[in-house]
Amino acid sequence: MHPSDSPSARLTALGTQLIEIHDWLRDELARLRAGLDSPGGAGLTRELRAHCVGFCAALDRHHTGEDGGAFRVLADQVPELRPVLAELSADHKTVAAILTRVETLLAEGGDGRSVRAELDGLAGLLESHFTYEERKLVAALSRLTGDTVQLLGVAPPDDETG
């Protein structure tokens, strides 16, 4: 077992794990956007479509997990964060709408340019959202106890598979 995988390490490092999840999501979104810009104009290959669907699902699980897990716990334990949590949850709805548009484009055989435009808007929103969330919540999250997947929707990526 990796030392950071112990229950006590997971519980005390929830804020750090949030940052790891955000960094992984940032990297995956950057890979998607770069794939759409690949030389030769391959555009939305089957692999790129699958990667996009997987990314959208992971991002949705993360935000759904936060809304139903960590944010509820934080609202109870740290009531002064409720306005911040409400703002972040509103962002989650905006992100969900963008993900729905991306999924619709993929299902309807949309072109790479249309998907890229949605992903560019998503990247801007997510960077602002993640930065704000990290600045406002990391310390409070690190004081929580609980399971990462239950509280944040997904587990942090395994940095050993790098």
Rank of each mutant, 00 (worst) to 15 (best):
M1S: 10
M1E: 03
P3S: 14
P3N: 12
S4A: 13
D5I: 07
S6E: 03
P7N: 13
A9H: 13
R10G: 02
R10A: 06
R10W: 03
T12V: 15
G15K: 01
T16P: 04
L18W: 03
L18Q: 06
E20T: 05
E20S: 15
H22M: 05
L29V: 03
D37T: 01
D37I: 00
D37R: 02
D37W: 01
S38V: 08
S38C: 06
P39R: 08
A42F: 05
L44E: 04
R46A: 08
L48F: 08
R49S: 00
A50F: 03
A50P: 00
G54Y: 06
F55R: 01
F55E: 10
F55V: 05
A58H: 12
L59W: 05
H63Y: 11
H63W: 06
T64Q: 15
T64F: 09
E66W: 02
G68I: 11
G68Y: 11
G68R: 13
G69M: 12
G69T: 13
A70W: 03
A70L: 09
F71A: 09
R72N: 06
V73K: 10
L74P: 01
L74D: 01
L74A: 02
D76K: 12
D76G: 14
V78H: 07
L81Y: 06
P83K: 09
P83H: 11
V84S: 15
L85H: 05
L85C: 02
E87Q: 15
E87P: 13
L88H: 06
A90I: 03
D91I: 04
H92E: 02
A96K: 08
A96D: 10
I98V: 12
I98R: 12
L99Q: 04
T100Y: 07
T100R: 11
R101H: 10
E108T: 08
G110S: 09
R113D: 14
S114H: 03
E118A: 09
L119R: 00
D120F: 00
D120Y: 00
A123H: 13
L125E: 14
E127I: 07
S128C: 13
S128E: 14
S128L: 15
S128V: 14
H129D: 06
F130W: 06
Y132R: 15
Y132S: 10
E133P: 00
E134F: 09
L137F: 07
L137R: 05
V138N: 11
L141H: 02
R143N: 11
R143E: 14
L144H: 13
T145H: 15
G146M: 04
D147H: 00
V149N: 01
Q150T: 09
L152W: 14
V154G: 12
V154K: 08
V154C: 12
P157Q: 04
P157F: 00
D159I: 09
D159F: 13
E160V: 05
E160F: 01
G162P: 02
G162S: 12
